[in-house]
């Protein structure tokens, strides 16, 4: 810190001096950041604000420009029927929405926790020294490199009820008594989605954890070995605390990814309400059901939920990102 070129003086015992060099650098920094910030404002900031705005209007797909402000109607409104009964309408009382929220959270928690455990196991295996380690590391990169849509298609072929190889394998090994329509049955649809997601993203988790593992100095283990610490205890007392920062960051990246999941479910289990997530439902309303404003309300709520969960996670987990201070 003390040798930073641009360290700014705080204690001022005399006239504050801003040197030519520092002025030049700060000006350059502003100039360099401007295009990027402008680009982000245009592609992210403005659309986000518009999406939120639409959620308070009666916009429809063919009448976006003529959208009129209707307040919180898309979220919650009171309807009095002719019979005099009072009915609540809107997103906040829409069972389909809350089903999607539940599906999303269930999916995110299950997939990320299973991926963390499996990723840790794979990372531990890869951290050991053995012949062919390079091949294993290359092999686990393959699922990561395959586009999500492609893996969804590959797996839906493998999970196919009639001609799928997994049913065949399960029957041969005696694990299944009859062929299962994995993606079409409500009970198994979520399992199918989880299998594919875990297959595809465990490598990412494993590699992040592995990077953390490799920063643990080897002599710590040697010292523990000499002290006769049991390997299981070594894992919980040494390894886990030391890779915790890496693990926490890996988990939050995956969690955010899982909470916005769209493509895998859209392709693998279309039309299954057992797996319909917030993103899938929101897009359906926006573009397939012509409920543009209602869909916008969903995407706004989704944004809020994810932002809230993220803040909660960072706060509770005391996650520290490398904030970039040199």
């Amino acid at each position: 810190m003390a040798t930073d070129v641009m360290a700014e003086p705080v204690v001022q015992t005399g006239v504050k001096i801003k040197s030519e060099l520092m002025q030049q650098r700060v000006r350059a920094a502003q100039l360099f950041l401007l295009p990027m910030l402008l680009a982000l404002a245009v592609v992210a900031g403005w659309p986000l604000l518009r999406s939120i705005y639409f959620s308070f209007t009666d916009a429809s797909l063919n009448n976006i420009d003529g959208a009129e402000w209707i307040g919180f109607g898309n979220y919650l409104r009171v309807q009095t029927l002719d019979s005099g009964a009072v009915r609540y309408r809107g997103l906040l009382v829409d069972p389909a929405w809350w089903n999607a929220v539940w599906n999303t959270l269930r999916f995110a928690v299950l997939s990320v926790s299973l991926e963390a455990v499996l990723g840790m196991l794979v990372a531990l295996v890869l951290n050991a020294e053995f012949r062919g380690r390079g091949i294993v590391r290359a092999a686990i990169l393959i699922p990561w490199a395959i586009p999500t849509i492609v893996s969804a298609k590959m797996w839906s072929w493998m999970l196919n009820d009639q001609f799928g190889i997994l049913n065949d394998l399960g029957m041969r090994l005696g694990l299944l008594s009859q062929k299962v329509a994995w993606t079409a049955t409500a009970e198994t649809a979520m399992t199918a989605v989880l299998i594919v997601d875990i297959w595809k993203t465990t490598p990412f988790m494993a590699l992040l954890i592995l990077a953390g593992l490799q920063m643990v100095p080897k002599d710590i283990y040697e010292a523990a070995e000499i002290d006769g610490v049991h390997p299981v205890k070594q894992f919980f007392k040494i390894t886990l605390p030391l890779v915790r920062p890496a693990l926490m960051v890996a988990i939050i990246f995956r969690l955010l990814d899982a909470l916005r999941i769209f493509d895998l479910i859209y392709v693998l289990t279309p039309n299954s309400s057992a797996t319909k997530t917030m993103s899938v439902l929101a897009r359906e309303n926006l573009f397939d059901f012509d409920k543009f404003a209602y869909g916008s309300a969903m995407s706004t709520l989704l944004f809020l939920i994810i932002a809230l969960l993220t803040i909660l996670y960072i706060w509770l987990g005391k996650v520290r990102f490398d904030g970039g201070d040199r």
Partner: peptide, 26 residues
């Protein structure tokens, strides 16, 4: 580093050949 100009002087004066160079670029 103060003489080189890579670091800013917090206070005081730096002169090269009698000319103040406090804020002059390295």
């Amino acid at each position: 580093r103060l003489i080189s100009g890579l670091e800013d002087i917090t206070s005081g004066e730096m002169l090269f050949d009698g000319k103040v160079v406090n804020s002059l670029a390295p």
